[in-house]
Design a binder for these strands. Structure first.
Length: 507
RNA sequence: CGGAGCGUAGCGCAGUUGGUAGCGCGCCUGGUUUGGGACCAGGAGGUCGAGAGUUCGAAUCUCUCCGCUCCGACCA
């Protein structure tokens, strides 16, 4: 057996490694439908953990869930010019509503629709149309709605979780009486995402507004959280948009204010998707497979009974059941510990490696020797696969939540260190070119090469900057909000700039 | 959507100048084993991505289509 479970390794071929991790961890697979994936039970369980936490955070911030149609009349999309333009190229369109059996046994679409329906790429327009009916008075505001749904964007180059033609997400849509309230909401939800990413996904992110070129179609401002993957590329892990009154005007979302004057609402929208699963993989997984942060791990502790004889099996299983029951009374992250006994009739080594590849944080083996000593053998997914430590059972029960917390914070710290090690402050275009390399080939890169990382650079928000970065395949990811203002001059235009931006290659 | 590469068993692959398909792992059965991916023996599993063509005969040659991967364009 090789010394690692995933082949190729990250250093050998990063994109292929990613796919092999998805497969080895049994998260998802390709479907017969081009560009669409099947999310398998383990992958969906991770998504359910994410959903559960986020949904709680949305409720805590006053939002309610609702559900809007999958189909959007073409005319709705046409209402906001920039919006149509932004999505026009990637829309699936339904034109018929019936199938008829043809003479050759083939099914033929018939019943042409009078108005084609667009499968939602996002729901601003249809939700806006409903908001227009729901909002009459300033007393109806703010209107704070979230929807968990699937959306379709016809992608030309799909990648499991990161970019598929259909994906699952949540989209929050809110309407407010004032500009300030809407801006505040936009930033509040950006913070929710940031907190969730860092606390629950153990994934450090940088919050900030996007440059004009990267804005959501129809938005006044788009904010994102950007994370660094283990190949040094940036991944946009969540977005929050301040839509101004653009959609309110397009959809006629109006209200009568206290003074009797009719005004347009100020709206926001924000979302995260199953792409976060890809983000977790590329942040934490290693050459042995997935590594899951305990807070989102469907199983945090797996108990592996080891036995030969029937008597041993009975005693060991009894011990496991007792241990599982006691652990389930402990809590971590406001939740009972999630413990599973794996008593499948498989060879021990096979079982262990499955759990390694699936990213289970803690593995506990209990065999006759442990039983005799009142102890157990503990292995951690953030330690080498073969490392085990013995521990008295009672001690483990008391220590388990703390071990999970240490695991979680350890992952976060490691990810932070990686990001720091691949972040630089640069002062000139020459430095930028040197940092990213003229091209990936020139950088001496194989498929496992680190793609630079994050460059903190002063750049103006003008097209000339994007043009200058284009040959490097680098984009301005966002203008970080953290830290002090640090005025400087744009490395492209020489003009004054208030803060540094993050430059990176991206997914 | 453009360029390149690839589609052969669940996974990874071999298959020569065309002659009717194999290996490793996995899977099933029996046995020996068992505290970190066991060993022996036996077995199941493939319309060779799909369709058409050339040929006595196609995994192999030709064409078309579909899908996947990488690069690009595009992508809140």
């Amino acid at each position: 057996m090789p010394d690692h479970a995933i082949s190729p390794t990250r250093a050998e071929n990063y994109p292929e490694w990613y796919q092999q991790v998805v497969r080895a961890a049994d998260l998802a697979e390709q479907s017969p439908v081009r560009g669409c994936m099947v999310i398998k039970p383990h992958g969906y369980a991770v998504w359910e953990r994410m959903q559960g936490i986020l949904d709680g955070m949305f409720k805590e911030t006053g939002h309610q869930n609702a559900y809007f149609p999958l189909f959007i009349p073409l005319s709705y999309l046409e209402k906001e010019a920039q919006h149509v333009e932004g999505f026009a190229k990637e829309c699936a369109v339904v034109t018929h509503h019936r199938l008829e059996l043809g003479p050759d046994g083939k099914l033929i679409p018939t019943g042409k629709l009078e108005e084609p329906l667009v499968v939602r790429p996002t729901s601003e327009t249809i939700i806006g149309a409903m908001f227009a009916k729901w909002v009459q008075s300033w007393r109806d505001l703010p209107l704070l709605i979230n929807q968990w749904a699937n959306v379709v964007r016809w992608e030309m180059r799909p990648r499991l979780f990161l970019r598929t033609s259909e994906f699952l997400w949540q989209e929050g849509h809110t309407a407010h009486a004032t500009r300030d309230e809407a801006v505040e909401e936009t930033l509040r939800m950006l913070d929710v995402y940031s907190t969730f990413a860092q606390r629950d996904l153990a994934m450090p992110v940088i919050r900030g507004p996007k440059p004009a070129a990267e804005r959501f179609p129809g938005a006044v401002d788009t904010y994102s959280i950007e994370a660094m993957m283990q190949d040094g590329k940036a991944l946009q892990a969540g977005t929050s948009h301040f839509l101004g009154q653009n959609f309110a005007k397009a959809q006629e979302i109006k209200f009568s204010g206290p003074s009797g004057v009719e005004e347009f609402c100020w709206t926001t929208s924000w979302g995260v998707s199953t792409r976060l699963i890809g983000a977790v993989i590329m942040t934490h997984a290693d050459d042995d497979g997935l590594v899951l942060p305990p807070r989102i791990a469907p199983v945090q502790i797996v108990l592996l009974p080891i036995h030969k004889t029937a008597e041993e099996k009975e005693a060991v299983l009894a011990c496991c059941r007792t241990l599982a029951a006691e652990l389930a009374t402990a809590r971590y992250g406001d939740q009972p510990l999630r413990v599973k006994i794996d008593s499948r009739d498989l060879r021990g080594g096979d079982k262990v490696w499955q759990h390694i590849k699936q990213g289970v944080p803690l593995r506990v083996e209990i065999g006759p020797r442990d039983l005799a000593a009142g102890a157990l053998s503990l292995s951690r997914r953030d330690r080498p696969p073969r490392e085990r430590t013995s521990m008295p059972v009672a001690e483990f029960i008391a220590a388990a939540p703390g071990l999970l917390e240490a695991f979680q914070t350890g992952l976060y710290a490691k990810a932070c260190q990686f990001r720091e090690a691949h972040s630089v402050r640069l002062e000139s275009m020459a430095d930028v070119i040197a940092f990213f390399g003229q091209s990936e080939q020139e950088a001496g890169a194989g498929k496992g090469a680190i793609q630079g990382g994050f460059a903190h650079v002063h750049v103006a928000d003008v097209p000339a900057v994007a043009a200058a970065l284009e040959p490097l395949k680098v984009t301005v990811r966002c203008i970080p909000m953290e830290g002090e203002d640090e005025p400087g001059v744009c490395v492209v235009t020489g003009g004054p700039v208030a803060r540094r931006s993050i430059l990176a290659r991206s997914y």
